[in-house]
Design a protein around this nucleic acid. Structure first.
Lengths: 341, 341
DNA sequence: AACAACGATGCAAACGTTTTCATCCGGCGA
DNA sequence: TCGCCGGATGAAAACGTTTGCATCGTTGTT
């Protein structure tokens, strides 16, 4: 009972029309008479015919797929982005190809190649920092592309996101405005991660403006995980000399820091204030609730999809589109004025 | 300067061979002489040729894609699953197509159809509860498929995951063993979510065994979000009559419950014990650290990919493969014996 | 020296669509 | 009556690959 797969010719034969008519019934319904269309539709259901997009896209038609390459899926903030990007795509009839490169820009290029083999109609990547080969691939192929998560007025490709530099700046400014002078920086490795790098630069810019110096022992590096951040901060607290304020590169790290403080009975915000970046799910609900710079993840995904599909539609010359999304500081319970010395 | 895209014939011409040879150089390198291969490879680089998988898959070849349909991406536990599934796929040269149906099984079927149009080589879905049309589509098409996240010895399709029923049972048993008799259940809506439904059944089965009755006011429903769970529990606490133990349908809900208790100054575990299911990232680090039933998310993703690719390889008749992954209770600080009455 | 065997390559058909162009038919105005 | 037009459909070419079969040297065997 090995029924070969039914194709458009089978449908045509059974409906008593030519394959061309069946094809038209799908793609240009107005060109085929209503009763013919109905007959075809009935046969399609009867035979369980499913169109073959590969065969379609071979004709220079759209493949109907969009590729998204992220550093990692396993991170609350990208999850929300992926979700909204995917929803926006699906609602417009596109299918998402997804891959994660694990913060390895070399792998990113390979994944891009693989997506191009699949002839995706467009490409979305995270951030503006990529290998030259990656840019070259995109430019030579003239494939519509957009960078999510980072805005830069001088970017080499279309982009949509907030200014990460400004996010770091805002977070640090909040602490400085509260009167903190002894400030620590808890950031992930910035190699191959221009978002984190920009945030760090932004924080440092503000601190320099205010004449605040951050000693090396208060510059802490931890990979993106609550556990790693907690461990790193417990070490710092163990050393005795702790800052009164801490800027974390994102909310996962900030959460880890808060948990560490709780475990070491170091009051937040009484002894140390913590500010994060991201406003992940849970940050507002934890105790103490986390002060953070809200990144509009869902908006980025939606706007990114919109821009990308716009580029896909505009056949010829792809213009550069840049969209700057606003940041806002969410002041909650994890920050306060520094304790009296 | 609108350079038409370079195809295999262009490469062949430039390399002074036939298209067939170029094709073979890619797919069966052993069949072509080393120096010819080198010449072709040079031309490929020079011209920036990228193979067209659509054209390949039209020949009945693999498309090299696997479809994964999840209820939502925006959830820590699926994130980890997606990540490991994706990695396993990539490492074997496959590309992931991902879609989320938002707990709507009707949309799930539509997404499946769309994946089939793309001629995915295999399909992975979450859970064993699907529309009949979904099963029919999979069976008629004879497309390799696997259900992730749920094991059932009598399942209609291949599956890999833990027994969710047992997860609920373990969580409830832990509380009962500690001596709790006044137990509440905090679960998500179970419609279209057989994982949650099974867990709830498992918990209820244990409670019935022990002769413990759960009044309706202690059966709380909240969608999968820390915020919703927190709100629901704050309401419950406000009512005054609170249970000594709480089984949460997953860690997100459990975290919300713990945060709610903290906000209302209800001690965990002194006044109320909370047990979750999932062991999400952060559960071990929060204060108090969360007692939970660990679900092996990463293992499921990897095993799922393995099984699926196995099915893809085994051309003909697809056997049913079922893999039961073990659960384990992680006892941490959020549970203890009930307070003396 | 004739021939078999083998390795490397080319030729052409095939895959499942879409689309251009041609055909056919009925109706309409001159 | 004739020619024309427009709507519906069919025939066939095209898309970019892969692959079965044929071809052509070379080399080894008898």
């Amino acid at each position: 009972m090995v029924s070969r797969h039914v194709d458009i010719v089978d449908v045509a034969r059974r409906a008593g029309v030519s394959p061309a008519t069946v094809s038209r019934a799908f793609n240009h319904p107005s060109l085929v008479r209503a009763d013919t269309r109905a007959r075809i539709s009935a046969v399609v259901d009867e035979l369980g015919y499913i169109r073959n997009r590969a065969a379609r896209s071979i004709h220079g038609k759209r493949s109907g797929t969009i590729g998204l390459i992220v550093p990692t899926v396993d991170n609350a903030i990208f999850s929300r982005l992926i979700q909204s990007f995917s929803d926006a795509l699906n609602s417009r009839g596109f299918t998402l190809l997804l891959s994660a490169h694990g913060y390895d820009l070399g792998r990113e290029k390979d994944l891009l190649r693989s997506f191009l083999e699949h002839r995706v109609d467009g490409i979305a990547v995270i951030g503006l920092d990529h290998e030259n080969a990656t840019f070259a691939l995109i430019e030579n192929r003239q494939v519509p592309a957009v960078a999510l998560w980072n805005h830069d007025g001088a970017s080499r490709m279309s982009c949509v996101g907030p200014e990460n530099h400004h996010a770091g700046y805002l977070a640090a400014r909040h602490l400085a405005d509260l009167g903190h002078r002894r400030i620590g920086l808890l950031f992930p490795p910035t190699r191959g991660n221009d978002r984190a790098a920009s945030r760090l630069e932004g924080a440092e810019a503000l601190l320099a403006e205010r004449g605040i110096d951050v000693p090396d022992r208060w510059r802490i590096e931890a990979v993106y995980s609550v556990a790693a951040a907690k461990r790193a901060l417990i070490d710092l607290i163990g050393d005795g000399d702790i800052p009164t304020g801490l800027v974390a590169g994102n909310d996962v790290l900030a959460q880890g820091a808060v948990f560490a403080a709780a475990e070491c009975a170091v009051g937040v915000p009484d002894r140390v204030s913590v500010v994060g970046i991201g406003d992940f799910s849970g940050s507002a609900e934890m105790t103490p609730s986390l002060t953070t710079v809200r990144l509009p993840a869902a908006e980025i995904g939606e706007a990114g999809a919109e821009i990308l599909l716009e580029l896909v539609r505009s056949q010829r010359r792809h213009p550069l589109i840049r969209r700057n999304l606003p940041l806002e500081l969410a002041v909650r319970a994890s920050t306060a004025a520094p304790p009296a010395p």
